[in-house]
Nucleic acid binder design. Structure first.
Length: 429
RNA sequence: GUGGCUGUAGCUCAAUCGGCAGAGCACUUGACUGUGGAUCAAGGUGUUGCGGGUUCAAGCCCCGUCAGCCACCCCA
C-alpha cells in the first residue's frame, strides 16, 4: 500500500463479500418488520442541528455529532439517530397519516466517537416504531418484533435477552425513597452505570449524589428485586401480552435499565448478550410520548427501538449464525471468448441468453481459455460456455458445469434451456 | 477527551545480544497451442508507517508524529 489515500477513520469498506452480509441482514430485517405490518420509510441523512438540540442525549449532540456549516452558513448535522427525524416527519403530516402508524427503516448514521470493537463512526441502524397507541400492549408488540428477529436469525434466549423496565416505575421508587425530583435524573444516570463501574466506585458515587446510606441500600434492594414489576400495572399488562405472543423466554424485567436518551417517558428496554463478553447493549428502545409535541406537533404516544448493525453482526459471527458461502457472483454463467475474431460472437451469445432471462457474464476480451476458466472458478460462476471453430461450424455451444466437472455440447437454440437444466441440478455435496 | 498495545511483501507473520531482508498464502508467467480447482518450476514480492536522535552499524534502542486495535467516557 503505497500512495493509497486511507479510508476515513471509523468507516467500513463494503467489498462484495461484506456487502452480501449487509444485504442478507437487511433482507431478514425487512421480512421480520413486514411480518408485523410495518412500512419501510427513510429520512434525510442531513438534518438541521436544532432538530437534535435538547431532544437527544446532550453529549451525543455536542460531542458526537458531525456538524458542519453549509455554504449558506446553516449548521447541518449528519444524523446521529433517527427518532427526531421520525418525530419531525410525522408531526408534519399528522393529520394525513393513518394511525396506528408502524414504520421501519434501515440506513446509515454517523457519530464522532473513538472506534473500537463493536463501534464505528459510520454505522447502520434498524429502527422500528409504533405511533398512536400508548398501551403496554403496544410496547409488547414493538418488543415482539425484535424478539422475532432474534428467533429468525437463530439467537436463542440462552444467548440474548431483552431487559425491560419502566421509567415511571423507577421514578415512583425514587420518590418513595425521598429522593427529590431535581436529582432523580442524575441518580438514574448513576443507576445506569452500575454494570460498568466496580461495586466500590459505584457506591462511592452515591454519596457524591447526596444519597444517604439508607437510600443506597434501598436502591440496591430495588435493583435486586426481580418481582418489582408487579408493582406496576403497566408492566403487568406488558408481560401478560409478551406471554400471549409466545415470547416470554426472550424478555426479562430489570430495574437497572434506564437508557441515556432524555426523551424516553415510560417503558425502556435493551438487549444484552447473556453472560458473554460483548459488554455492550445490542440495541435499545422505549416509549417516548412527548417527543412529537417537543418538535412542534400534537402530542402523540410512540414506542420504538434501534439496533445497530455492528454489534448484532459481532453477535451473529460469534455464534456462527452468519450465512456461509453467500453468493457474490450474481451471474451463474460465463460466456468465454475463444479468440479475437470471435469476441463479438460471444457478445451476441451472451445477449441471446440474457434475453431468455438468464444472468450472464461475458469475458470482455480475448484470453487463453485456462485463464477464463480460472476466472469463472474464482468468481464462483458455475457454468461456462465455449464456442470455438468446431461449435461455430456446427451451430452448437459447449456448456461446462464447473461444479460437477461435466460438459455437454448442444444446439445453440437449446443452450438456454440446457443452462437452466444444469443450474437446477442439485450438487451432491 | 483519557489510558494501554501494535505498526516488516497484497495478506498472515518471523528475524537470536543492535550485525547482509525471510517463510507461508496470494499474484504473474510457464510445464498444459480448446477447459478451472490439484501438483511442479521460474519470478516483482520491500522507503521495515513517517520524521529525527544515539551508534562503526538500527526492523530492533531513545524522542516526536501518524495510523490501527483494545479499554474508559458515551452509545447502536
Amino acid at each position: 500500500m503505497k500512495n493509497i489515500i486511507p479510508p476515513v477513520k471509523g468507516t467500513r469498506d463494503f467489498y462484495p463479500q461484506q456487502m452480501a452480509i449487509r444485504v442478507w441482514l437487511y433482507n431478514i430485517i425487512r421480512q421480520v418488520s413486514e411480518s408485523f405490518g410495518y412500512q419501510e420509510w427513510d429520512a434525510p441523512f442531513l438534518e438541521s442541528l436544532e432538530l437534535y438540540a435538547a431532544k437527544s442525549n446532550e453529549e451525543m449532540v455536542k460531542e458526537q455529532s458531525y456538524v458542519f456549516e453549509d455554504r449558506g452558513g446553516k449548521l447541518i448535522t449528519l444524523r446521529p439517530e433517527l427518532t427526531p427525524s421520525l418525530a419531525r416527519m410525522v408531526a408534519q403530516k399528522q393529520n394525513v397519516l393513518v394511525f396506528p402508524l408502524r414504520w421501519w427503516s434501515f440506513g446509515p448514521f454517523w457519530r464522532y466517537e473513538r472506534p473500537q470493537k463493536g463501534r464505528t463512526r459510520e454505522f447502520f441502524q434498524w429502527n422500528v416504531d409504533l405511533l398512536g397507541p400508548d398501551s403496554p400492549e403496544a410496547d409488547a408488540e414493538n418488543v415482539a418484533v425484535l424478539a422475532t428477529f432474534f428467533k429468525t436469525v437463530g439467537l436463542t434466549p440462552k444467548e440474548v435477552l431483552i431487559m425491560v423496565s419502566d421509567r415511571c416505575l423507577l421514578d415512583a421508587q425514587l420518590s418513595a425513597f425521598d429522593i427529590p425530583a431535581e436529582s432523580r435524573a442524575a441518580v438514574s444516570a448513576w443507576i445506569d452505570q452500575r454494570d460498568k463501574l466496580s461495586a466500590e466506585a459505584w457506591r462511592a458515587k452515591a454519596s457524591e449524589l447526596g444519597l444517604s446510606d439508607e437510600q443506597l441500600s434501598q436502591i440496591e434492594a430495588m435493583l435486586a428485586d426481580k418481582e418489582l414489576w408487579k408493582n406496576s400495572a403497566e408492566l403487568i399488562r406488558f408481560f401478560k401480552a409478551i406471554e400471549t405472543l409466545g415470547l416470554s423466554d426472550y424478555v426479562r424485567f430489570d430495574a437497572g435499565i434506564v437508557r441515556g436518551f432524555t426523551y424516553y417517558t415510560g417503558t425502556v428496554f435493551e438487549a444484552w448478550e447473556v453472560g458473554g463478553d460483548i459488554r455492550r447493549s445490542i440495541l435499545g428502545g422505549g416509549r417516548y410520548d412527548k417527543l412529537l409535541a417537543d418538535v412542534g406537533g400534537d402530542r402523540l404516544p410512540a414506542v420504538g427501538y434501534a439496533m445497530g448493525d455492528v454489534v448484532i453482526t459481532l453477535m451473529l459471527e460469534k455464534y456462527g449464525l452468519l450465512p456461509k458461502d453467500l453468493k457474490v457472483s450474481p451471474a451463474p454463467v460465463l460466456v468465454t471468448v475463444f479468440d479475437h475474431e470471435r469476441l463479438l460472437e460471444s457478445y451476441a451469445l451472451a445477449s441471446e441468453l440474457r434475453r431468455t432471462g438468464l444472468s450472464v457474464t461475458c469475458y470482455p476480451e480475448p484470453a487463453k481459455l485456462p485463464k477464463q476458466f480460472k476466472f469463472a472458478d474464482r468468481m464462483g460462476i458455475r457454468l461456462v460456455t465455449v464456442v470455438g471453430p468446431d461449435e461455430a461450424a456446427a451451430g452448437k455451444v459447449t456448456l461446462k458445469d464447473l461444479a460437477r466437472g461435466k460438459q455437454v455440447t448442444v444446439a445453440r437454440e437449446k443452450a438456454a434451456e440446457a443452462i437452466r437444466q444444469a443450474l437446477a441440478k442439485v450438487l451432491a455435496s
